[in-house]
Amino acid sequence: MVQIVKDILAAATLVFGFTSLVLFIADAPVLDAFKHIWLGSFASTMKFSQVLAVWVPLILCSCGLLFAFRANLWNIGIEGQVIMGAIGGMAVLRFPGLENPVLILTLSFIAAMITGGAWGLLAGLLKTRGGVHEIFGGLGLNFVAQGFILWLIFGPWKRPGIASMSGTELLPHKLWLSSPPGWRIAYAGLVVAICTLILTWLFLYKSKLGLKLKAIGKNPRAALLYDISPEGYYLLSIIICGAFAGMAGFMQITAVYHRLIPAISSGYGYLALLLVMLAGYRIVPIPFLALFFAGLNVGAIQLPIVLQVDSTLSGVIQGCCVLSALFVLGMRQRRKQL
């Protein structure tokens, strides 16, 4: 536990050090930049609500990944699972003839979980039946999902008359998840994220399923002697992960963008992978780390406007975060080996 706190502190120091260096090289005022990241993320309730809007999908993806990592699966395909969840959810929302918004949204939520889970199942089947490592299978399926969403946006689901990168037509207001006045985060999103955290904790740490997944992750050969079939649980864990990712996709379309855009996943799947690794595959640090990453993500958006630095800088800063996280992880691995 102490070690994790140390790691997080080390990563944070690295992030700030690295970021300062980049800002310095880009000739941007370093302290001002940090100030604006802070102002842009935590200074007002409105900004903070934006941070929470990023926090929700990060939490959903991270919880899903905890299941996959528990069984020692690297579900890189989570990015595609978010996309497919968004597509599945949107398909229901576009369905003509349904009137009751609550019913439509509920169905859409379920559809998003199913499509996300199915996309996960596909990666799982490629592994268990086809012998394709889940990293490569997942990566391939991510490209397929990305291609599929582009095809929908520019093809069958394009706005009447124009097809554009800005996405499909906005959803009618009644299909937006409602937010508190002045906030940019839906009640439902927060509730779902918190429930998911609690459920994940229950399943992974208290239920027999969690124990079985851990056993398989630690020693699939021994699991056979306990009548636990690794294949079945690999599939189960990746389906759960995909379903959670699908929920994140649903949140993106109903609470944030209110339409389908090509970058609907916003890279949150990949970000969640790093987050979970940085958390040492434990659930406790995840809400806090997710808040940190979400804050950085939202805060960096306005840097180009306020400080007239190049708009790519926020991307560079995020890259620094990721590199620092990887560095800290690498150091942890080395420490283990010594």
Partner: peptide, 27 residues
């Protein structure tokens, strides 16, 4: 340790894994 037991899993949890009765909780 390679084939029959799980590293990083406690003795009690081994009994839980061995228990064939299905239950939701680890008990």
């Amino acid at each position: 340790l390679e084939e029959a037991l799980f590293t990083d899993i406690s003795l009690s949890d081994h009994f839980s894994l061995r228990d064939k009765k299905s239950s939701f909780w680890q008990k």
